[in-house]
């Protein structure tokens, strides 16, 4: 017997959760398209974002929502400053450029995780929010928890703005051209350094602010990064590297999967299932389930 009320509630939770994962996944996929580097630091951006929420919220009357604009600005600036470093290690005459890029983000992830761990200790912290509490009852469907709803709305809005920039502006066109072919884009007179910085900065800003929302929904802990790195990988692997529309579907699938396994199987099994799926999909179809990603080279 499946309880219909519980079932719809799980679907609601899963969809709302998926909204924020999509934000992370789309930025991550774009960063890969533009820089051709798989960013191992993605989960740590989420983690640092959540910690910024926990640390800065008391300054704003214990309200995590007000931290978001600061996180957006800080992460954009930091991302724009980190991008040239990644670009530098993957180009030029050094041996194994891809390896160097991968290891660099790996070092960045270690640095971020280690710094937060050293400064704040291993315990998790709450990201307070008095505005986003309680839930909205919708008769016949279930409860929409306010935190998760606002999170999803933020995710969808952020995504819409991002997509508008990418597909409806000249800057967005430049970024898509770089993702298509960096050398050609440069020959067309695109300032690749600038637009790569913008793309990476936007990705970092989206991911960091997603972290604040995730911190408000759950909490902030130094070890949480790994999980979100896994989630980001899961989404782009499922969707195919660099294929944005697929990420949206994959993010929603991820939210639903997490919410269903947590209720019907067990919380412990979620990561096992996710990692196993990543591994199998990579082996069977490295260009994603739909086969529309960039092929493994």
């Amino acid at each position: 017997m499946v309880d219909i009320g519980l079932f719809t509630q799980i679907v609601i939770n899963g969809l709302l959760l998926g909204g924020i994962y999509v934000t992370i996944g789309v930025g991550f996929s774009l960063a890969f398209g533009v820089l051709e580097v798989v960013d191992f630091a993605v989960g740590e951006y989420v983690m640092v974002g959540a910690f910024m929420g926990a640390v800065l919220a008391p300054l704003f009357g214990a309200e995590g929502v007000f931290v978001i604009p600061i996180v957006l600005v800080v992460f954009f600036a930091v991302g724009a400053l980190i991008q040239p470093l990644i670009h530098h290690v993957t180009t030029g005459d050094r041996p194994h450029p891809l390896l160097m890029g991968l290891v660099f983000t790996f070092g960045l992830a270690t640095f971020l995780r280690g710094s937060v761990l050293t400064i704040f200790g291993p315990n998790s912290q709450d990201v307070p929010s008095s505005l986003l509490t309680g839930g909205i009852e919708v008769p016949g469907l279930g409860t929409f928890p306010v935190v998760r709803t606002v999170t999803a709305v933020f995710g969808v809005t952020g995504l819409a703005v991002f997509m508008y920039y990418l597909y409806r502006t000249r800057g967005g066109m430049a970024i898509r051209a770089i993702a298509e072919d960096r050398t050609n884009a440069r020959l067309m007179g695109i300032n690749i350094n600038r637009y790569q910085s913008i793309a990476y900065g936007a990705y970092a800003a989206l991911t960091g602010s997603a972290g604040v929302f995730i911190g408000m929904t759950f909490n902030a802990s130094p070890g949480m990064g790994l999980q979100y790195t896994a989630f980001a990988f899961f989404m782009v692997v499922l969707a195919g590297m660099g294929y944005l529309p697929g990420v949206i579907v994959a993010g929603i699938v991820l939210g639903l999967t997490q919410s269903f396994t947590a209720v019907y199987i067990s919380g412990n099994a979620v990561l096992l299932v996710l990692f196993a799926i990543i591994y199998v999909v990579l082996l069977v179809s490295p260009a994603g389930i739909l086969g529309k990603g960039e092929w493994a080279t």
């Binding site: 580097v37 798989v38 891809l98 390896l99 991968l102 790994l226 896994a230 990988f233 692997v237 412990n268 099994a269 990561l271 096992l272 990692f275 196993a276 990543i278 591994y279 990579l282 082996l283 490295p286 493994a296 080279t297």
Partner: peptide, 23 residues
């Protein structure tokens, strides 16, 4: 698999082995 794909695949495999060992 090569490059980043190999890295992610081995990473995912190692994590699933760890999760399996925990269960």
């Amino acid at each position: 698999l090569t490059g980043a794909y190999f890295a992610i695949a081995t990473w995912a495999l190692a994590e699933s082995i760890k999760q399996a060992a925990l269960i």
